Amino acid sequence: MSGYDLSLGAKVMAGVSNWQDAGLLTSLAVLLFGRSEQHDHLSARVTLRWWRGEPYLTGIREG
């Protein structure tokens, strides 16, 4: 596994944690105003949105 995959995996794990801990208003702000990134990671397509410097995992699909 490359360093890129480990770094992206850490962002995905942080994104999951942030999304689960976010309140309703934060979740809405992330979905409406967050900067979106899509990556292929371990045969999955993940969508991360960044809000106020923190990643939030908003989507995951099998690739």
Rank of each mutant, 00 (worst) to 15 (best):
A14V: 02
N18M: 04
A14T: 08
E62C: 04
R35D: 10
L25F: 14
L8W: 07
G23A: 06
G34K: 05
Y56M: 06
L57D: 08
P55E: 14
A29E: 15
L24A: 04
E54V: 12
M1W: 13
G59I: 13
F33P: 02
L32Y: 02
S17Q: 04
S27V: 00
G59W: 10
L48H: 03
T58P: 08
T26C: 01
G23F: 10
G59M: 12
L57I: 01
W51M: 05
L28E: 13
A29M: 07
L32T: 05
Q20I: 14
T58A: 03
T26H: 02
V12S: 07
R35V: 12
D40K: 03
D5E: 15
S43P: 01
D40F: 07
S27L: 06
W50L: 11
S2K: 06
R61N: 08
R52L: 11
F33W: 08
M13P: 00
H39Q: 14
R49K: 15
M1G: 15
I60L: 04
S43I: 04
L31P: 02
F33M: 14
L42M: 06
I60M: 06
S2R: 10
W51S: 02
L31M: 15
R45A: 11
S43K: 15
L25A: 12
G23W: 05
L31C: 04
V30M: 01
S36I: 04
Y56G: 01
R52F: 02
R61M: 11
S2V: 08
Q20F: 06
S27Y: 00
S36W: 01
L32W: 09
G63Q: 09
D40I: 09
G15Y: 14
R52W: 03
L31D: 03
D5P: 00
G15E: 09
L57Y: 03
A44S: 13
Q38H: 11
L24V: 10
G53A: 11
D21V: 00
S43H: 08
V46Y: 02
A14H: 01
E54W: 05
L8Y: 03
R49L: 12
T26S: 04
L28I: 08
S27M: 10
W50T: 07
K11M: 13
S36K: 09
K11L: 15
G3L: 08
G23E: 08
Y4L: 12
L42T: 01
L28P: 01
T58E: 11
M1S: 14
S17N: 06
M13F: 02
G59Q: 12
S7E: 12
G9H: 12
S7L: 15
G34T: 09
W50G: 02
L24R: 14
A22K: 11
D40C: 06
L8V: 13
E54Y: 03
A10P: 04
E62L: 11
V12F: 10
S27C: 13
L42P: 00
F33T: 14
A14K: 09
R45N: 11
L28H: 03
S43G: 10
H41S: 00
G3V: 07
L8G: 01
L6F: 13
L8S: 07
Y4G: 02
E62Y: 08
G23S: 12
T58M: 04
V30W: 01
L31G: 00
F33E: 05
G59V: 05
Q38V: 14
L48I: 15
M13L: 10
A29L: 05
S2E: 13
F33R: 11
W51R: 04
S7N: 04
E62F: 05
W19E: 07
L48N: 09
H39C: 02
G9L: 13
D40V: 09
R61E: 10
Q20S: 03
